[in-house]
Every structure is written in C-alpha cells, then in structure tokens.
C-alpha cells in the first residue's frame, strides 16, 4: 500500500498516542515497582525513577515464596492446558467430523458454560473436591481450570477443523491410516496455528485465576499460585505499593512472554476458529 508522507506521519502519531494511553498502567506498574517505598505518596509523582530500587525485585525473588508461587502457577497452567487440549482436540474432532444426535445442542451448551457465575459454583465445587480428597492439592485447581478451558477450546478447535478439507484424512486412510492416525498425523500438524492459539488462550485463563485458587488452596500455603500470594502482600496494616507492583509484574511476565511468541498464531488461529 502506498501512503503519502503526511499520511504516514498521521498513522505513526496516532499509533504512538494510542499505545501510550493504553499502556500507561503497565508503565506505571514498572515505575512504581522501582520507586523507594517512602517516595510513593508524594507529589509531584516521579515519572522516571531517579534511584531505581532493584532490591525490591531481588528481595521478592530471594526472600519470599514468590518463586515457588510462580512455579505453582506455571505447573497448574501447563498441566491444565495440556489436559484440556487433549480433551478438546478429541471433542472438537468428533463434533467436526461426525453427525450425532444432540450435536447442535453442544454448541449452545458450550455457551451456557460461559454464563455460570463463578461465585455460584464455588461452594458446590469446594464440596466436590473435598469428597475427592483433592482439597489443597494443585489437582483441584488443574481440574477446575481444565473444565473452564475445555468448552471454549473445543469450540475454537472445531471451527479450525471444519476449515480443513475432509479429503485430507480420507486420503490418509486410503493409505492405511486408522482414524486415530489420521487425526494425530494429518489433522493436528496442519492445525498447529489453531492449537497454539487455543493453548495460549487456555494458559492465560488458568494463569489469571484468583477466585478458585484462593478458595481451594487457602489451607495449603505451599501450593499457592502467584495471584494468591500477591494478595497477601496487601496486609491489614501495610500496603507497600512498590512491592505489590513488582510482584504483579513478575506474575504478568510469563504470560507476556508466552504471548510474545504465540501472538502471531493467536490471530491466525482465531481466524479459522471464530471467523470462518
């Protein structure tokens, strides 16, 4: 596309202004996290740290349970995403390739699951996990997250599979592949962008959870996730915004990095999944 110089200037100016406004909160997190705690509540605010306090970060990493909480978050997110991907791939393939009674209802049902207020489910879920003996274990969180991911993931992947011509696996089966073989050796490799997008979505969903984690893991501090841990930094009597912001950035960083690498798949994967 050819653009005149004024048009280019207009475009870049708009971009810079829009990004500055939209990302100001992120910038402010960084600035606050580096400020000394006694300089936070004074005016004029410092927009650039004169004396960056890196020890806020080193303290968090070496003197608190933050690394452990981050590990737990990562473990839960990876396993929950893995399980839900497996389950969703099978379900989506089934919905995409087979005509079944009630197949239509499944679509609406998936939407239904996005309507349940989480606060309404908390107490019944708590009882269920207790009966299963999973209370306080990371498995309770993994299962709850996987369940939250599966409906949307199935729906995204079904859209993606629908866009793959059936001739592809028919050809493979003529060559002697089983239906499983066709799915794993032909369909999945072709669907890589869709899988990546769905996995990223699941990972973000799991990583961002606070309500479930706080409820199921309250009793087991060793298993806390990053979000639950951060909440304890806001004490009854003390609020050190610099520490909270630093911890928050550490918690947001892994997703930002994952997003950095996978974002191009996200757009591509959603094109098929949602747009079609």
């Amino acid at each position: 596309m050819n653009r005149t110089l004024p048009q280019s200037i207009l475009l870049y100016t708009t971009l810079v202004v829009v990004i500055c406004i939209l990302l100001f909160p992120v910038y402010w997190m960084v600035i606050t996290s580096l400020a000394p705690s006694n300089a936070l509540r004074s005016f004029p605010p410092q927009f650039w740290p004169q004396n960056p306090q890196w020890q806020t970060y080193t303290n968090l990493i070496f003197n608190t349970d933050m690394p452990r909480w981050l590990m737990n978050s990562a473990l839960v997110a990876v396993v929950a995403t893995g399980i839900s991907m497996l389950v969703s791939v099978l379900a989506a393939y089934s919905l995409s390739r087979y005509t079944m009674k009630g197949g239509e209802a499944v679509g609406l049902f998936i939407l239904m699951s996005k309507m349940l207020p989480a606060t309404m489910l908390i107490i019944p879920l708590f009882g269920i996990f207790r009966n299963l003996g999973l209370m306080g274990s990371l498995w309770s969180l993994i299962i709850a997250h996987a369940t939250a991911i599966v409906p949307f993931a199935t729906w995204m992947l079904k859209g993606y599979f629908d866009s793959i011509p059936q001739e592809l696996e028919q050809a493979a089966q003529v060559d002697g592949c089983t239906p499983w073989g066709a799915l794993f050796r032909v369909i999945l490799p072709v669907s890589a962008p869709g899988l990546a997008a769905t996995a990223l979505y699941g990972f973000v969903l799991s990583w961002a959870d606070y309500l479930y984690a706080r409820t199921f893991l309250a009793n087991a501090a060793g298993n806390w996730t990053a979000n639950v841990g951060i909440a304890t930094f806001k004490g009854e009597y003390q609020t050190d915004w610099n520490v909270i912001m630093a911890a928050s950035l550490l918690a947001a960083l892994p997703i930002m990095i994952a997003y950095l690498f996978l974002q191009r798949y996200l757009v591509g994967g959603l094109t098929a999944g949602a747009g079609k």
């Binding site: 951060i230 918690a251 997703i255």
Partner: peptide, 9 residues
C-alpha cells in the same frame, strides 16, 4: 498487551 495481565493484578 493488557490481555496478558491477570485481572487481579
């Protein structure tokens, strides 16, 4: 980017 930041944070 804001999508990647957990809601509580």
């Amino acid at each position: 980017l804001p999508w990647a930041i957990p809601e509580v944070v």
